[in-house]
Each structure stands twice: as C-alpha cells, then as structure tokens.
C-alpha cells in the first residue's frame, strides 16, 4: 500500500481546489471563550463535583496527611498496595500495609497488579469545575496500569495543583507524557441510561485534598 499515502494526499489536495492558495495555513485562535467560569472557590467546587461522581473526598491539612492515608487504607482493609517509586515516603509513614513498588524500570505485571488491594499516587493537575484529576505518568503517579487495575485508587491532590477550568489545565500539561484524565470512578450508562459506578476501572476513587489552614 505504498501508493496510498500519495493517493490520499492527492485526493485531499484536489478536493480543496476552492481554498485560495494564499489562505494562511496557520490559525490564529480567537480564544473569545472564558479561561474559567467563576463557579466558586476552586477547592470547594472540586470537592462538590467529585462527590457528585460518587468519589470519596477528604480535606486534610499537610500534617494530617500520613495519618489520613493510614486511616483510609485501614478502612478499606487493604493489606497490600502498589506505590509508584516517586510517591514521598512520608505519605505512608503511619501505615504498615505492604508496599508493592512499581516503576517504568521495575514494572509489576497486570496479574500482579490485579492481586493488590489498591494504589496510592499523586497527580499532575486537578480541574475544579469538571471534578477532574489528571495523571501524567510522573514518578509519583506511576505507569498508567497502576491506577487502572487495582480496585481502589487513593489519590493525593495538593491545593496548589487545583485550577478552575479546563483551559488552564491544558496549558499546564505536557503532551509528550501519557495523560489520563479521571473524573470519578469508572461508570457506565449503557443499560437504559441507568448510571452504574464501577465497570472496568477502579470502583472506588478516594481523594485526599491537602490544603493549609488558610
């Protein structure tokens, strides 16, 4: 099929005869739409939206984080959790669950990930208005399968990672990284449009939102 490329491009060019040759091929975006919609204080909006998707959200102060991580995992009855290599050790300082390490250099197999009780990660950015957490595969967020196969995903979001709306988030993301946008637990509405949470992805998304006293 070596000729297909030229054939398709040739057809495209023939189809566009009406486009003036001097029309610029670079587009200057109008960007008349809003950068954000002023839905309210970002952290409150984020919590509200995540809860609407039936994610579990806890607001914690920085010094409470390790205790809260331990408490969440204990409530789940988790015995073994997968922890990407870049997750700060301090987050898990107060829990004695078994940590299963994972990194690009030392990956666990899908079968091994299927056998753990959950995953603990950070995030790249969170979007308040849409209740979205974006992971970009950095060492504290891990490979994509780490937050996909285990049934529980505990995600730590720092207040300074939260933006109001989608346009701000897109500007902060690095397209060369593998990106996963997560808005609540896995869900389907395929049967009579009844929403059911938890199909193939983690059935529980739990978020620890870390903010100072201010």
């Amino acid at each position: 099929m070596s000729g297909s490329r030229e054939r398709v491009l040739g057809r495209v060019r023939a189809a566009l005869e009406d486009v003036p040759a001097d029309e610029p091929a670079e587009r200057v975006p109008s960007r008349t739409y809003a950068r954000s919609h002023g839905a309210g204080p970002a952290l409150e909006v984020l919590v509200d939206r995540l809860e609407e998707y039936r994610a579990l959200v806890h607001r914690v102060r920085p010094e409470e984080l390790a205790g809260q991580v331990a408490a969440v995992l204990e409530r789940r009855g988790a015995r073994r959790v997968v922890v990407p290599s870049g997750v700060p050790g301090a987050w898990l300082a107060e829990t004695d669950v078994e940590r299963v390490p994972d990194s690009r250099q030392d990956p666990r197999s899908p079968g091994e990930l299927d056998a753990v009780d959950g995953a603990v990660t950070g995030c790249a950015v969170a979007v308040a208005e849409t209740g979205t957490i974006v992971l970009d595969g950095s060492p504290d967020q891990g490979r994509r399968s780490v937050t996909l196969i285990p049934d529980h995903h505990l995600c730590v979001v720092r207040a300074d990672q939260v933006v109001d709306a989608v346009p701000e988030a897109v500007r902060l993301l690095e397209p060369t990284r593998p990106l996963t946008w997560i808005s609540g637990p896995s869900a389907t509405s395929d049967i009579e449009l009844d929403r059911v949470e938890g199909v193939h992805g983690p059935r529980t998304l739990e978020v620890l939102l870390v903010a100072g006293n201010g």
Binding site: R49, Y53, V127, E129, T130, G131, T132, R144, P175, T176, R177, P178, L179, T180, W181, I182, S183, G184, P185, S186, A187, G201
Partner: peptide, 12 residues
C-alpha cells in the same frame, strides 16, 4: 451531558 466523562486517555 456530563461536565466530564470518567476517563480520557491521551498518548503520543
């Protein structure tokens, strides 16, 4: 009709 769908994957 959601503010955002549960999952979006982007890869290069």
């Amino acid at each position: 009709g959601e503010r955002m769908n549960p999952y979006t994957s982007m890869w290069s």
